[in-house]
């Protein structure tokens, strides 16, 4: 039975790395997720989607880490307070800065963009994993991608919107 969990670990690590932008925070997140999953394995319905189950556990663990301040993350609700940092020209050009650009997004956008763009989940799966309506997934996806594009483009002035 442990094998069905172990099989998911590389994906969980990839997602966690992108989500936290940092190897050790990511592995902490994965480790805590695994502890929970091992402990709750009897609750998993055999034959149901293990990936969705594990990713929803990771989502809950991630939110917990943010609440406990183990992780630094801006929420959509804090965005009004967010002070945009001006990226350098070089930032926009180099791919490793994608990682720091993602870090500047509110975590609600980050999760949706990564589950779809990196993990390649369907929109319905993402709604299930995050426990939000499909419409919310779509609006976060649309806004998140546009924000990420602006950050990558170096926060060019006309795109700096604070309206919701």
């Amino acid at each position: 039975m442990d094998a069905v969990i172990t099989e998911q670990i590389p994906r969980l690590r990839r997602y966690a790395r992108a989500l936290t932008g940092d190897r050790s925070s990511a592995d902490d997140l994965v480790q805590d997720t695994l502890e929970r999953a091992w402990g709750k394995l009897h609750l998993w319905r055999r034959g149901s989607d293990m990936r969705a189950w594990m990713f929803s556990i990771m989502h809950n663990t991630f939110i917990n880490h943010i609440r406990k301040k183990q992780l630094d993350a801006v929420s959509m609700d804090d965005e009004a307070l967010e002070i945009p940092t001006r990226a350098t020209q070089e930032d926009a050009l180099q791919m490793r800065d994608l990682s720091s650009a993602i870090g500047k997004l509110a975590y609600e956008y980050r999760e949706v963009i990564l589950l779809i763009g990196l993990e390649q989940m369907s929109y319905e799966e993402v709604a299930q994993v995050l426990g939000i309506p499909l419409g919310t997934v779509m609006s976060r996806l649309s806004r998140g991608r546009e924000r990420l594009r602006n950050i990558m483009a170096g926060e060019s002035a006309p795109m700096l919107r604070r309206v919701k």
């Binding site: 992108a18 791919m95 490793r96 994608l98 990196l118 991608r145 594009r149």
Partner: peptide
């Protein structure tokens, strides 16, 4: 964005 995410984190 999708391509870059894959390239960076795969």
């Amino acid at each position: 964005q999708n391509d870059a995410l894959q390239a960076l984190f795969n």
